[in-house]
């Protein structure tokens, strides 16, 4: 079997103004079938993708924010969120959805998927990847 590669999907766009965010999520779900080490990064307007309370009914759009909570089922368990990007937008971790995964190696204990990192920390995460895909 070939070596497991580290894939990072970088999300920098708000959820509904363009198709990038939804497409990125679809690519992640499809790519998850390939048994690689997948992480997601949310920075700049990308942090808006994770806010709770999104209601798209009247806007006539598909609300894909609940799908982030399914990522754990696809073994995508690392969602890096940049602190500075939250700060600049007046957001805190409390404004984001609670996203968890079940750790199969720890009796299915529920653990948080969101990892808040500084901008410098985000640069380290990016530099640690084999493949970086931007959306």
């Amino acid at each position: 079997m070939s070596k497991v590669k580290k894939f990072l999907y970088v999300n920098r766009k708000a959820p509904y103004g363009t198709i990038y965010a939804q497409e990125a999520l679809e690519v992640v779900l499809i790519g998850a079938a390939f048994d690689q080490d997948v992480s997601l990064a949310f920075l700049d307007d990308g942090v808006f993708q994770l806010t709770k309370g999104q209601d798209t009914k009247e806007a006539g759009l598909k609300n894909f924010s609940p799908t982030f909570r399914a990522l754990g089922d696809y073994e995508v368990t690392k969602l890096y969120v940049e602190q500075e990007s939250l700060d600049e937008r007046g957001l805190t971790l409390d404004d984001l959805q609670d996203i968890q995964y079940e750790d199969e190696d720890d009796d299915y204990a529920e653990k948080p998927s969101i990892i808040v990192v500084s901008r410098a920390g985000m640069a380290d995460v990016m530099a640690d990847q084999d493949v970086v895909l931007s959306f």
Binding site: L29, A33, K62, P66, T67, R69, A70, D73
Partner: peptide, 18 residues
């Protein structure tokens, strides 16, 4: 139920695992 909660139809391996 899965679709109602997550807005996606799960992939087959996710379905079987669940």
């Amino acid at each position: 139920d899965y679709y109602e909660e997550y807005q996606i139809a799960p992939a087959v391996r996710v379905l079987i695992k669940s």
